[in-house]
């Protein structure tokens, strides 16, 4: 990026109208991927000069234990519903989960899920990291996920969405090929980096369960309806990507999981959705762009 300038120069302006048509495998019109955030929040993390990890003095009992609900209870509830309706996960992983709760990570592996890095902990923020420090968390992520799952991570969602001016260049240099941190489009798009071959894949803040329940204060049924509307529109337009970013401690609560299952049932039954993983979407996009250029 252009550090310190008004335009960070992340990508070129490419209007939605007039783009080359993208068709997903099997002639599907919308690629749907589900992104469970499997996170670990530390109970007593060091304080970062730019962001407090918890609003209360430690221990923030509700903050910590609410998130712990994911790993004790609601991960399995959420994952079973996804599997039942044919939705694989592409996991945004606090990679220290591989040490704290390897049972949760192993469950994702068993279900055929893809893993990408969401930093070491969701309570360690990247702001102000030196290039060496940021290289250390990228190298840690690659090595930790490889040891735990056998997978080489391809993607990055910055820990707690905290960045440095170097993040995108560095992940591209290490061979990662998609970022989930840019929200400027409903399609896969190229990202400008010093080296490498990075694209942005639509993740979503707007239909993220955290936004649904804690920014927009939706009821469980309103959130399920939001997912269906988002899906219907993107399927109508075609060539699009829909991400459903989740946190088990939110969507896996007993009053939310039933309406959520109905939304998945609707999307799976519609017939226009390619239910897939982030890396597969990026591969299908690259293949079509290569074909169009031949």
């Amino acid at each position: 990026m252009h550090e310190g300038e008004a335009d960070p120069d992340l990508y070129d302006y490419t209007p939605y109208r007039g783009r080359a048509k993208i068709t997903w495998p099997g002639g599907k019109s919308v690629a749907v991927w589900v992104a469970p955030n499997l996170e670990y929040y530390e109970i007593d993390p060091p304080t970062h000069p730019k962001r407090k990890p918890w609003t209360k003095p430690h221990p923030d009992v509700v903050g910590y234990s609410h998130r712990d609900h994911s790993n004790r209870v609601s991960h399995w509830r959420m994952a079973d519903v996804m599997t039942k309706h044919g939705f694989p996960g592409s996991v945004s992983l606090s990679v220290a989960m591989c040490q704290h709760h390897p049972e949760v990570v192993a469950d994702g592996v068993k279900r055929g899920w893809e893993f990408f890095s969401h930093g070491i902990y969701n309570t360690r923020y990247a702001y102000d990291m030196s290039e060496e420090q940021e290289r250390a968390i990228i190298e840690d992520s690659i090595a930790t996920v490889r040891a735990a799952t056998g997978q080489i991570i391809r993607g990055w969602l910055a820990p707690a969405l905290t960045h440095t001016p170097h993040t995108l260049d560095l992940i591209a240099e290490y061979g990662l090929d998609y970022t989930c941190d840019l929200y400027h489009d409903d399609q896969v798009q190229p990202v400008k980096t010093a080296t490498g071959n990075l694209v942005s894949i639509p993740y979503s803040l707007e239909v993220n369960d955290h936004y649904g329940f804690f920014v927009y204060n939706m009821s469980p049924r309103e959130y399920a309806d939001t997912l269906v509307r988002q899906y219907e529109r993107l399927a109508d337009e075609g060539g699009t990507v829909m991400c459903i970013p989740l946190h088990a401690y939110l969507i896996g609560q007993p009053h939310r999981i039933g309406p959520f299952e109905e939304a998945l049932r609707h999307i799976a039954a519609d017939g226009r959705a390619w239910l897939t993983r982030a890396g597969d979407i990026v591969d299908a996009y690259r293949e079509q762009i290569r074909s169009a250029q031949r």
Binding site: E42, I43, D44, P46, H48, P49, P59, A96, Q99, H100, P102, I120, Y121, R124, D128, M129, S130, Q133, A136, I137
Partner: peptide, 20 residues
């Protein structure tokens, strides 16, 4: 500004919780 080196050290990164 850079962060203290200890900011990327994780003394309680272990199986189970980071508390007892």
């Amino acid at each position: 500004m850079t962060l203290d080196p200890s900011y990327i050290e994780y003394p309680k990164r272990r199986h189970g919780y980071d508390h007892e």
